[in-house]
Design a binder for these strands. Sequence first.
RNA 1: GCCACCUUAGCUCAGCUGGUUAGAGCGGCUGUUUUGUAAACAGUAGGUCGUCGGUUCGAAUCCGACAGGUGGCUCCA
Length: 609
Amino acid sequence: MGENGRKQPDSLYKQRHSLAHILAYAVGDIYQNVKYGVGPVIDNGFFYDFDLDETISEDDLGKIEKRMQEIINKDYKFDREEIELSAAKERIKKQEQPYKEELINDILTKGSTDIYAEEGEDIESVDKVSFYTIGDFSDLCRGGHAKSTGKVGAFKLTKISGAYWRGNEKNPQMQRIYGVAFETQKELDEYLQLVEEAKNRDHRKLGRELDLFTVSDLVGSGLPLMTPRGAVLREELARYSQELQAAQGFERVWSPHIAKTTLYEKSGHYQKFPERFEVSSIESNDKFMMKPMNCPHHIQIFARRPWSYRDLPVRYMENTTNYRDEKHGELHGLSRIRSLSQDDGHVFCSEEDIESEVSAIVGMVKDMYKSLDMKFYARLSYRDSSSIYLGDKKLWAKAENILAKVAKTEKLDFMEEVGEAAFYGPKIDFMVNDSLGREWQCATIQLDFVQPERFDLSYVDSNGAEKRPVMVHKALLGSIERFMSVYIEHTAGRFPVWLAPEQIRVITVNQEQKTVRFAESIVEKAKELDVRIGLGNDNESVGKKIRSSEVWKVPYTVVVGEKEIQSGEVTPRIRNDLEVQKSHSPYKIEDFLKTVANEARSRASKTSL
RNA sequence: GCCACCUUAGCUCAGCUGGUUAGAGCGGCUGUUUUGUAAACAGUAGGUCGUCGGUUCGAAUCCGACAGGUGGCUCCA
């Protein structure tokens, strides 16, 4: 029973749980020799795992749904029965259900079916288990059901997948059938519509339609290529991140994309990165690898010379690409790739400076997501009592207090989670909400007590004593490509002016010399002001060219013809999501262009025209 | 990597159970038109139907392998 399941309203939870049973009943009716796994409630519905002789495909879902509906129509009561464990074991043995038998055995030895529970650890005295029966289908189950099969709301089977028994790839693979379910058909329809909307906003679809990026089989999967338009978006985001950091004293550094593996052996990353790309040299015996992260490089830049407490904090930033050989099946558009760029940065400071440094970075995160018009909350991740965490316990406690204090003084919307810290230090992860209500981890601030130790970093304090600096890792966007995927879906490709690959499109009313020359003069003036402008001078109707500009989601479209040539004024057509109020008045061309340039510079999310 | 599904023109997709020269819309190109705020008209070029192999008189269609893609593989009676 997942945490997620528990957060649901009780009645909905019971309906979904009941549907899982009904699904199992239906599958048992349709197929021979069905071995049942587990069937829990999940975020928007339920699933059930089966071990079947034949493989089912999505085409079979309709058939199963139909049988489920029949069971629902019969309105069977959910009958609860409590029996002794030993009797239950016998009963299941007779049914020849090996998976259920394993569960019973776990209850017997561990008092729980939790796969993470250690044998012998906190054995509850369980002597009875319950079975729930509907019609002639009976299942071992803790409970939580609707009164009868007729009271389960609206559902739809959605997909099918392979899933290992108890999530362990050494175990047999079972067939998992997923369903979504809600109290009413209306809610179900709304949910399905949201899924549909998400499909329409899929960044891979928009990436193609708006010509932002491409993938090539020859270059390799998970290695996206940025087109001119995509490169603009990417550069603008990256530039903003660096401007925010530079304002807080971060200096730009640069490091090569490969390094000797000994660097990562020393940092401790080598063992922790089985998904590394190794690089061999024909000339030398040294082993190299593509850098999976940047901290060891920045550490080496810091370590080049001795430091005084007067020099601290030292802050380095670099927008650069890391390489990680992710599992093939996990690659996805721009969000899960093998060459990911980070707006990375590292601070080397004294313990006393942690608070002000973290606070400054929190300030950047706020600025960044305000400009991007996205809401977020913070998750403070602390250590628990387990032994995986390295570094001085007192320092940990102090640092965790500092993070909490900063979260309060910065008035962050935050939650605290014990046991979620990195092994090298506590952290703040920022969870960004997109316009469809989904959550993404983007920005992060991580304290690190381990790497300064491993690389023996030091500075001289005011008493002349050698001291160990603390390291702070930070990223505002996280992976820039991944952020792009989130942002493309958040905006549905309707970027604000400062990020739009094409900010203005000039459309000609005809192809007469005079008109074309006038349009070209506007393009030239715009370019002088660093405004990104396109020219729509095809031999097409004005309506067609306006449509094209809309389809490409260009913020401003201006049509020029005789009238504009005479007046020297244009009436920009504004993309509707940017409009504050509708008052399309004519602007002198120079004023219009300057306003657009200013909007871009100020990173405004709405138009001021 | 594992499970299921998919792969036909630059894009979106037809092509029924194998049967003449594989189709459409958009986009591209050429021409006509010279357009005033979300799609003018006509013509035309694009495809060894993902790759390789097999079955067959005959394969886009059936079978197999491989490649690439999509959804999932975290939710524990």
